[in-house]
Write a protein that binds this DNA or RNA. Structure first.
Lengths: 250, 250
DNA sequence: CCGGATCGTGGCGGAATTGTGGCAACGGCT
DNA sequence: AGCCGTTGCCACAATTCCGCCACGATCCGG
């Protein structure tokens, strides 16, 4: 029963953005602190309207939402968010054991709720569960037989299976790193188009800004090496002096 | 509530209907919520009579039953249910360590009992066990006419009998635990597809938010060991650095 | 042809991720 | 109660990967 488990900061928490909407500043701070300590990025908002203005521009990975708020309450915000995305995990904070709010929230499409006062441990747990659930939903591994929307990119002798993270060159498997795979995909997706280092960085690290341009060079180096190993005559990755790199079309 | 249940389809729990009979509303809510989070469908009743009226029309897959109830107590309901079906798994909730009730319940044909207060973890475990037992019992009778989903998965040299929780590698039986079996199934079901630790956790522990990513590593370790014992050249469980694991297709 | 800018590459330090032995807790069984 | 199989997780070891630097090669405008 007493199942004390250390909240190991989930490895997948890196880069996960959580919207936190509550009019109580102390709550925002407490919850925000706890979430950040788990490795999440947190964007706090004091009311529904402020949150909505931001969410319109771009959705976070999960939203923690108080129901009672000035300007725009949680229910309305939830309704609007659901119109934008069916998948976005929404976790309600209800101020009391208010059956009405609870039910209404769930009917509006909240994924879970938590009654104040709640333990931080429980909130973290539920956040974790919701994110996990969302992760599964986002990568629904359709069976090879089922309605398989094969996300496969084929460019000349190169074949990229985006779902499986597998690359092939002339039917030989390429043992690529995820980073290398992403880079290769960014390049090969538009044969002939020049990709600047900034663009390529953007592809590989959308969040973590400010990596050196030379880092791309390193990856290009490793990519070329692996591709040359697979085919000594490989020359599809072309350097465009002063601009960037280009995938040479056949 | 229904929304959540829909979202949390556990691997084997999909579509399983559980009747929940207890006069305490809070208990119905708590247990119901937990069961739904497991992916079960739950039909709650406040007393034995109401439950009986429904069960006469059609039986659920399992019944969780309090003994002390108004209208019709659990023992009487159990007796009537046993008259309808010899197989229906029945799980009693006894309010105290009442030896009398316990024995009487088992004599009447209950499959298991649980003393209040009980941990949700334990209840879920017992439900899982009872359903599995029922599935095994039903298996010999269930002919191909059932037209239900395939209960046997074959991937290369691996064969998984989902009904009996038995695994075979090149026709040799693999002595796997339930956890290992579930993990193996999740992996092998989609050969070549990368399964994140989050996804694998979701398969094996849809409810447990505290489960650590490293737990998956442990099970992978044990799985690999057993599979290597069966076949020294075994290498189908592939690590994808930074992402998760993958069942290597032949 | 020269000098500055840009690029290629080897390699290194360490961060991140994964493998593994082991242990303590727990449920199930007798 | 006591034993046994299972399990979750920790601590530490092993591995993989990344980012960047340093230095040499290459390019290009003048």
């Amino acid at each position: 029963m007493e199942y004390i488990a250390a909240m190991t900061s989930s490895a997948g928490a890196a880069g996960v953005l959580i919207g936190l909407v509550d009019d109580e500043e102390s709550l925002r701070e407490t919850v925000g602190f706890a979430l950040r300590r788990e490795g999440y990025r947190v964007e706090p908002f004091p009311d529904g309207l402020a949150a909505w203005r931001s969410f319109e521009q771009g959705l976070p990975d999960l939203v923690v939402l108080d129901i009672l708020m000035p300007q725009m309450d949680g229910l309305e915000l939830c309704r609007r968010l659901r119109a934008l995305s069916e998948r976005l995990p929404i976790l309600f904070l209800t101020s009391k054991d208010d059956e009405f709010d609870r039910v209404l929230g769930l009917e509006l499409g909240a994924d879970d709720y938590l009654c104040k006062p709640f333990s931080m441990r429980e909130l973290l747990a539920r956040v974790k569960v919701l994110l996990r659930r969302a992760a599964v939903r986002d990568e629904p591994a359709g069976g090879p037989t089922g309605g398989t929307e094969e996300r496969i990119v084929e460019v000349g002798r190169l074949r990229l299976d985006l779902r499986r993270y597998q690359a092939h060159w002339s039917n030989a498997a390429l043992p690529l790193t995820v980073t290398e795979f992403t880079l290769l995909h960014a390049l090969a997706r538009h044969p002939g188009h020049v990709k600047s280092r900034a663009q390529l960085l953007q592809e590989g690290y959308p969040h973590d800004a400010y990596a050196s341009d030379r880092t791309i060079d390193s990856h290009i180096k490793r990519l070329r090496r692996k591709l040359t190993e697979a085919d000594p005559a490989f020359d599809a990755v072309e350097t465009v002096y002063g601009l960037g790199y280009r995938w040479r079309p056949d």
